[in-house]
Write a protein that binds this DNA or RNA. Sequence first.
DNA 1: GTCTATAGGCCGATAGAC
DNA 2: GTCTATCGGCCTATAGAC
Lengths: 202, 202
Amino acid sequence: MARTQGSRAEITGPLVRDTARRLFARQGYAAVSMRQIAAAVGVQAGALYAYTPDKQALLFDLLESHMRDLLAAWADDPAADPLDRLQRFVRFHIGFSLDHSDAVFLSYMELRNLTPENFARIAALRGRYEAALETILRDGMAAGVMRIDDAKLATLAMIAMLTGVTNWYREGGRLDRARIGDIYLGLARGAVGACPDARRAR
Amino acid sequence: MARTQGSRAEITGPLVRDTARRLFARQGYAAVSMRQIAAAVGVQAGALYAYTPDKQALLFDLLESHMRDLLAAWADDPAADPLDRLQRFVRFHIGFSLDHSDAVFLSYMELRNLTPENFARIAALRGRYEAALETILRDGMAAGVMRIDDAKLATLAMIAMLTGVTNWYREGGRLDRARIGDIYLGLARGAVGACPDARRAR
DNA sequence: GTCTATAGGCCGATAGAC
DNA sequence: GTCTATCGGCCTATAGAC
């Protein structure tokens, strides 16, 4: 891992973030030392402080950029059929979560290690994402294609259900991603009262 | 917090566990020091080692006893209507999770801080609990009152959905526990294809 | 069972050379 | 931008007195 002296910010910068994300997700923020990150990157510990003012800022940057990436990646079409929008959301959320499982895990586990101000900023971003799904559900109710007791709870319940895929999914397992998407779409449709029967009948 | 010398194992033993559970859940296992636990209990750090051989064993004991309590608290009636059993499970799982939210949080967040052997033991206990729900779903399918693409995934999805309540529930919030149970029961029934329409038609 | 004291070690962060 | 060296501090766990 030793490296000769020299400037390689273009490489090291992203590498520090990628390494920190992976290690934080695997062992937890508090359990990972700056020395450990540095060793995995291939620099000495002091060099990390050229890329982050401190460890807390490194965690916050990882969480914030993840939430911004997530929000930027989701594009809804408010004019489309709510059931089609739900289908797109389910597939998107599962796919994005599996593609960024370390960041997803971090975003759930390490909120408690943020300062109150940093926590509030991440929570606000999460709220915007939840609102994206809640809008679909409310539009579906208004269109009469979904039956939901409480749109807010249904939103939280569905996101928890979908994100749970990251807890057990393993590449090369029994089911591929497309099949998993199909199965979860069936669960999601049923949960919001758009089960196959109701769908055929509309 | 200072305490005069003396033996009070009956008090201190449970207090160490309760304190460790609360602090681990709030800050994370790695972020909590033995000194911190000791201070909250009201003893010196060295005294903790009369109750646990080391910090890792303390974490494992908390997780294992939680899983055993959970399994012991759930009693199914295999002869009853699968939809009634599902209803009981949903209410039980939400209620137990909210009553033991620190332990539930620990059981999800700190598995990675267990040794491989300890992890395997907790995973086995969790598997037994998942099997309890999966049995209900399979019985429901066999009885023709549930329609499910994949019972294993439906089990994992539902547990994730129900456990998610612990992420946002606050005492004295907009909804009381009974109402939350009703709402989640509706979501759960729909997800397994036992939505109101199908139910009336059976 | 609890205390005090301490061993041996790793921590985050900074200073100054190159 | 990265290195080496280091400060001051906190860590887990143990030893021995009471």
